[in-house]
Design a protein around this nucleic acid. Structure first.
Lengths: 240, 240
DNA sequence: CAGTGGTCTAGACCACTCA
DNA sequence: GAGTGGTCTAGACCACTGG
């Protein structure tokens, strides 16, 4: 029953074998897969090696492991996909276009009267409003708030040159992020994007935290015609 | 220097400690982190335990490991987020609403004249058109094609009762998927969704393969007001 | 309470790669 | 050539849990 796959480590071959039998449907959701000691015999290896393979599969969500009971094929496949939330400048340049940034507005604002998620009352914010262009054509609008208490250095950056998202991405590590994707009519953004106010737009909202403290929030609006988020998902990511 | 975190396994504590020092900025991208044997001494444990922690961090992309050189903080953070592509029925029921399915059209079609990505010419397809309702209010429209050569059982399923997506998710394992998210005006879907034809809608297109063979393609349209995709991303996923 | 997975040890050999 | 990470072994003890 031992499978002769590519020349690689034994634990990753065990992982691949089990993975293939699950994905091919040979082992269906709910089925118990062989015990560790059975796989030890099958592959003539130690328990650690089997354990590494199965732990990896469990981490990927393909199997579930229960003491005393065994390991089972997970009830359903993960309905998640890795979605690239690209840096706009990088995305534009990747497509061979010339990127231009237009800073429209910039000022410091303190939240005095009311909180504004994710920021609490009293937060000092740097407010930015800008426009991204690809080959001199409007690509997206962006309205951003940066928490100056957490990122004081942002106050000295010339965001007429460096896109706020790119600067933050490479200067401020984040630990949590929440993305909301929606649609709406262009409305006020229609003029900035050179489209009709009644055109459909894709809207991306993101809140970002570092260790529970809000760092930045941003709302980006894209013309529906020119942009769509693409998420390609292939198999589980090996982690061994 | 040993950190007394929550009561958990030692390797996950080592992982957490290193992770925190990276995320806090104490160890910056490009920095070398302690050698395995140094961490062995620091935590008074065996090399396998340290290795498990660092391998996990490497799998998550937080560090890069090089023989002879050591382990280094990865140059930049992953700009990806996990986006839940929910099963519509599950999503509606999760929110406590009553789910209803309306099958609008169903027929078998063979691609004779032209291919239709991701399907090749000659593929026999089951075409479905349906509407998802939450508490009797239109929630989304769905147009789907299922490759009958690969999923013959689909021809015998009553998709007036079981949502196609739910059935496929639990019956046909997939290995690759590509999601496209865009915005557009409601147009013809406006009537089905009880909104104006000039309203903005969120559109989700997904192609799914199993081992390179196209299984299904689907286009779902949501009213902009009633739906937005939310992707919450917190740190890296532990895999130990 | 018996058997599973979870964790850990104290070694070992190897491949790679940098100095 | 020396030192790193990659892999593997043959044990061990423990926590949990299902029969």
């Amino acid at each position: 029953m031992v499978d002769f796959g590519q020349a690689t480590s034994l634990h990753s071959r065990i992982r691949s074998d089990v993975e293939r039998r699950i994905l091919s449907g040979e082992w269906k959701p709910g089925d118990r897969i062989p015990f560790e000691h059975e796989l030890m015999v099958e592959y003539s290896c130690s328990r650690m090696t089997v354990s590494k393979a199965l732990s990896s599969l469990a981490g990927a969500g393909l199997i579930q492991r229960r003491r005393r009971a065994g390991s089972f094929v997970a009830p359903q496949h993960v309905d998640m996909a890795a979605l690239a939330i690209p840096d706009i400048r990088a995305e534009i340049q990747k497509n061979g276009a010339i990127y231009t940034l237009e800073l429209i507005e910039r000022h410091v604002h303190e939240l005095t009267s009311s909180a504004e998620p994710p920021f609490e009352l009293g937060t000092r914010l740097l407010r930015l409003s800008c426009r991204h262009l690809a080959d001199n054509r409007p690509f997206a609008t962006e309205r951003r708030s940066i928490n100056l208490s957490e990122v004081p250095a942002a106050e000295d950056v010339d965001f007429g040159i460096v896109p706020p998202g790119s600067w933050l991405l490479s200067n401020v590590p984040w630990t949590e992020a929440e993305n909301r994707i929606g649609a709406r009519l262009a409305e006020a953004d229609g003029d900035l994007l050179n489209i009709g106010v009644d055109s459909a737009c894709l809207m991306l909202e993101r809140h970002t935290w570092r260790a529970g403290v809000p760092i930045t929030s941003v709302r980006q609006v894209f013309p529906a015609s020119g942009f769509s988020l693409v998420a390609r998902f292939a198999g589980m990511n090996p982690d061994g």
